Simulated scan of single mutants.
Amino acid sequence: MMKPRNQVVQVGRFGGPDGLEVVDAPMPTPGPGEVRVRVLASGLEYTDVTIRRHLYPQTMRLRPPFVLGYDVVGEIDQLGDGVTGFRLGERVADMTVVGSNAAYRTLRAKDLTRMPTDVDPAEATTLILSWTTAYQLLHRTARVQRGQRVLVQGAAGAVGQALLTLGRMAGLELWGTARGEHAGIVRELGATPIDYQREDFTRVLPGGFDVVFDGVGEDDYRRSFAALRPGGLLCAYGYSANVQAERRLLSLLMWLVRVYVWRQVLGWLPGGKRLRLYSINLMRARHPAWFREDLERLFELLATGAIRPRVAGRISIDEVADAHRRLEAGSLAGKLVLCPDLEVPRAEAASATAPEAPLQVSRAQ
């Protein structure tokens, strides 16, 4: 029997995709309370680009080399001391922020979410960050009600598509901003498209929106705030416009501080409009049970066919640098997923028009 081999994708230096390295690594051994998993799938998200560029506040203290990989679906192949309730061969999921673009890794048992055996690991991986973010924005942060009028900024992105899909299931009336060429995506997902390059979304709906979800952060969210009705709610969860502008980390942190200060004075502004800042990691730290409950709910929807996240490509470990270039270029038909055991022909990996993934996504997370 061939001895298992561990390979990882690490950031050798901050900057462009050329700073990524595929290297051999020691096989990890689970400590007390940990399990080791053979990685079946790990997401490749635009957030990884911000981490690689040293523009992600949560990883600002990391220095190369370190392993990328925000989320993971794996099969348990070793149990550490004291682990109960899990068995060898069981499939589990976790959100790790870094470390999961690997063939094998260890995880804390208390953080794991069980995954149904009859779902595709690649599709399941797409739910961990983007779809859980969308679910919690809708049901934990905004607590939306059927019939509300909702605007999704960056509607063609991964979180945007999930917001539209889950928002439609919640009975919302939806609008979504996107480039004009992505109008079909927004319309197919049940929302009214708004070409943000040609239309003023602050004037689209007389009286304003009940809720605006904004992961773009252009103009410090001010135009999204202006699009709200009196008493409306702005949920801010990202800042992709600032990442695409390639700000340095210090200036990005100063921008986040400015947004936070702006949040403190909103309660004193006319109209009673509100702002809530959302972070999936902060939400998980405060309410760890919610993350597991919400991800399990999404896994159930996937298992029953109620949702079908788009997988644009299943990427082998040697193709991750090319995958990052595609992430930065945008216009992918769904989400890229690293499958370490897979040897994918480049022609297949490069295809962005597979029948299972007819839609495009933008650069947003």
Rank of each mutant, 00 (worst) to 15 (best):
Q7F: 15
R13S: 04
G15L: 04
G16R: 03
G16C: 11
P17F: 05
P17W: 06
P17R: 05
V22S: 12
V23L: 15
A25T: 05
T29A: 07
G33Q: 08
E34Y: 01
V35S: 11
R52T: 07
T59W: 02
L62H: 08
P65N: 08
F66T: 02
G82F: 11
V92P: 02
D94I: 08
N101R: 04
P121C: 01
A122K: 04
R140S: 06
R143S: 03
Q148I: 10
L163Y: 13
L166G: 05
E181Y: 13
I194L: 13
Q197S: 15
F201C: 03
G207W: 07
G208H: 05
G217H: 14
F225T: 14
A226G: 09
L233M: 09
A241H: 12
L253F: 03
V259C: 12
Y260H: 12
Y260V: 13
V265F: 07
G267Y: 04
R274Q: 14
L277W: 00
R284M: 08
L298P: 06
L298W: 01
L298M: 09
A312L: 06
D322W: 12
R325Q: 13
G334T: 10
L336N: 02
E343L: 15
A347C: 03
E348N: 02
A349P: 04
A357R: 02
Q360A: 07
